[in-house]
Nucleic acid binder design. Structure first.
Lengths: 206, 206
DNA sequence: GATTTTTGCACCTAGGTGGAAATT
DNA sequence: TCAATTTCCACCTAGGTGCAAAAA
């Protein structure tokens, strides 16, 4: 914790698959939302350093509105179209399943949110907190939160500086019920192993 | 916690799939062990009551030798055959992945050990504690342990009565690298969904 | 009519079965 | 030769994809 250049108590976070996120971001990332919940692809995954190895932390992701607009895909482009629906509804927080845990645990390996699911079903908030409820055709920004907690896992809000929030603009996305931009569809097919069956050259290379 | 007939501080544990365990037990249950690890079938699953909802507990299974014999299947029967190999080696404890957690959590739903794996690979002890290392042709007895812990998850051995152990004789089994008793094989095929392909009437009923 | 959402589907990934043959 | 173990396999379960048609 006394490495040169590091502020004590200040965590460093790196987005693991940033090059892939950037490929999508160039075309305006879209994420499918469904009633039963759909995983993100790419999914959020981080490396973290600068924690106190013996302290305890909760680590979670939330998803907030990235701008005040309702969006529509028209003429091959995303264009703002009226105000965002800001009626608050449903859970938008996903606690990492390893929480709470020690700084040593969180720094040992990649912190991956591959099982986080996005839904448009407002009644899905109770599903073990595995679902984040979003509205279609709105733009969202995921955030990572690192919260130092007491040894019993409870939060101590009286002490300042125990909550750190990290935002990666390249992870912004528009929630959709069906892909709009065919460039995005092709990137999903090319990189998501579960979509391998849709690759043009599938029979050529396997 | 003031239900009639219940001793305060004393947990009650029920084996969930006891009728199935008994079907196997009548024929002397066998469990396959492999290098990469094999799940148990049936697997251990419990309902628990009588915990303090707000106290914290670790819940884990261990597997101990059920008798001092080496066993062999001869003439259609299991017969003792020399002494058990008692050289201590490898991990025989499987902590439930939800540990540590509150009494309320443990009592809310079935506590299932479906992902516990059995292996004969002594070097497999380090695999995230997911593997229990056993010796082939020895008879074993799984046990359930409920340990009240401090709020930070550490054990307090100075206080008595914070460890409770439960043993269900119908869950005894002999570890094997290949099934010996065809009655056991047939019970596995009939009841394990992953073995459905081996059912005689598979094409008739699907 | 046009847009958005839902449903059923073929096609994958990922991994748990016992059988049979090969190995020890 | 015999007993025990390992390896490879076809066949499942379980569930994550985008597509196309249907529904809203």
């Amino acid at each position: 914790s006394t490495q040169p250049g590091l502020v004590p108590g200040k965590a460093q976070v790196y987005l693991c698959n940033r090059p892939l996120w950037l490929k999508f971001h160039r075309h305006q990332t879209e994420m499918i939302i469904t009633k039963q919940g759909r995983r993100m692809f790419p999914f959020l995954s981080f490396n973290i350093s600068g924690l106190d190895p013996t302290a305890h932390y909760n680590i979670f992701v939330d998803v907030i509105l990235a701008d005040p607009n309702h969006w529509r895909f028209q003429g091959g482009k995303w264009v703002p179209c009226g105000k965002a629906d800001t009626n608050v509804q449903g859970n938008r927080v996903y606690m990492h399943p390893d929480s709470p845990n020690t700084g040593a645990h969180w720094m040992r390996q990649e912190i991956s949110f591959g099982k986080l699911k996005l839904t448009n079903n407002k009644g899905a908030s109770n599903n073990n907190g595995q679902m984040v409820v979003l509205q279609s055709l709105h733009k969202y920004q995921p955030r990572l939160h690192v919260v130092e907690v007491n040894e019993d896992g409870t939060e101590d809000t009286s002490q300042p500086g125990r909550v750190q929030t990290f935002t990666f603009p390249e992870t912004q996305f528009i929630a959709v019920t069906a892909y709009q931009n065919t460039d995005i569809t092709q990137l999903k097919i090319d990189h998501n192993p579960f979509a391998k069956g849709f690759r043009d050259n599938y029979d050529t290379i396997y």
